[in-house]
Simulated assay, not measured.
Amino acid sequence: MSFEEGDHVVLHDEHSEYDGETGKITQKVETMFGDANYTVSFDDGQEAGVPEDNLEEADVDEE
């Protein structure tokens, strides 16, 4: 599944301090191999260079 800027996602990366947290995609960067890496912002920081395989669509109700 491909994500776009503004999507809410759950990060799954046991090496990240944000593992299991829900954040918002603020940037999508295509690699030279055609894959995408994402920057995900959280309430207290951000994680950059996140591969698509480490993200899951979050079930968030926006008001």
Rank of each mutant, 00 (worst) to 15 (best):
E17I: 07
G6H: 12
T22N: 07
Q46G: 09
G6A: 12
V29H: 11
K24R: 15
A48N: 08
L55W: 01
I25Q: 13
L55Q: 01
F3T: 13
Y38H: 12
D7H: 13
Y18L: 03
K28V: 15
F42Y: 12
H15W: 00
A36C: 10
Q27I: 06
I25D: 07
Y18A: 05
T22H: 08
H8I: 00
E21V: 03
F33I: 00
E57F: 06
E56G: 08
D43M: 13
T39Y: 02
V10E: 08
G49E: 09
V29E: 15
Q46P: 02
F42K: 09
E52V: 11
V29Q: 14
H12D: 03
E5R: 15
E52R: 12
D61W: 01
T26K: 14
H8L: 04
T31S: 13
D43Y: 12
K28H: 11
D43R: 14
I25L: 13
Q27E: 14
D43E: 15
V40Y: 09
E21S: 10
E17F: 00
V40I: 14
V10C: 03
M1F: 10
E4N: 15
A58I: 01
E30G: 06
D43V: 13
A58L: 09
A58P: 04
T39L: 08
F3Q: 11
V40H: 08
D59R: 00
Y18C: 05
G45C: 04
D59A: 02
E63N: 06
S41I: 06
E4C: 08
H15I: 00
G23R: 03
E14S: 07
N54F: 01
D19W: 02
G34N: 01
D7K: 09
E17L: 03
D61M: 00
G23N: 05
A36K: 12
L11P: 01
G6R: 14
Y38F: 13
S16R: 00
F42G: 08
F33P: 00
E57L: 12
A58D: 07
G6T: 11
E4V: 14
E57A: 13
D13A: 07
F3C: 13
E63P: 01
G45R: 02
E4H: 14
G34E: 02
G23T: 04
G23S: 05
S16W: 00
A48P: 00
G20L: 04
E21D: 08
V9P: 03
